[in-house]
């Protein structure tokens, strides 16, 4: 794995999860996840996924170099999520970051692209449950880990300002 493909995997993950790069690296699991995705879908499809993401980014980039979020959303759906091969892998990358689990790819996918042992449902590391993005997304701690302090459960969940609807208004 090259530093460049790691960087591209991170950029793809930022766009798929809506978490920042610092937060993704902050799980300590980005390298594990890259290795998992690659082993599950194979080098070729993995490279296609990163390439499709770069194209989607290019579609959404305006002349001034800024990214149009609406165009990006559309381009990601068009180039990745609606693609029969890349779509299921991309959905799995989202689930991987959020739940810390690799879910088996659907049978239609393996029929077409071949089955691999690494593609079956599995946990990545013992830490991946604790580091699932699902927990910060809902403002809760993973039950049984990252203890939030006695009595804190009586408080409403804490969601980062930028994720609240009122933030954009």
């Amino acid at each position: 794995m090259t530093a460049r493909s790691f960087e591209r995997f991170l950029h793809l993950s930022v766009d798929l999860t809506a978490f920042r790069e610092t937060e993704l690296l902050g799980t300590g699991l980005a390298h594990h996840y890259l290795a998992k995705v690659r082993a599950a879908c194979g080098d070729e499809i993995f490279a296609d996924l990163l390439a499709a993401h770069r194209l989607a980014r290019a579609d959404a980039t305006r002349d001034a170099g800024t990214c149009d979020r609406t165009l990006l959303d559309r381009a990601l759906r068009h180039r990745i999520l609606s693609d029969d091969t890349l779509g299921p892998v991309a959905r799995n990358v989202i689930k991987l970051w959020y739940a810390g689990m690799w879910y088996g790819l659907p049978p239609e996918w393996t029929d077409r692209n071949g089955a691999r042992a690494a593609a079956e449902t599995s946990t990545v590391t013992a830490a991946s449950y604790q580091e699932g993005l699902l927990w910060p997304a809902i403002g809760a701690n993973p039950p049984g880990a990252k203890a939030p302090g006695y009595g804190s459960w009586a408080q409403p969940p804490r969601i980062e300002e930028r994720y609240l609807k009122r933030a954009g208004k």
């Binding site: 690296l25 939030p148 804190s152």
Partner: peptide, 21 residues
């Protein structure tokens, strides 16, 4: 008691920073 909750949140922030090159 609130300060202890605060400490745990600081813990998570420290961990996040340290895992970043």
């Amino acid at each position: 008691q609130d300060a202890v909750w605060y400490m745990f949140r600081l813990r998570d922030k420290i961990n996040q920073l340290m895992r970043n090159p």
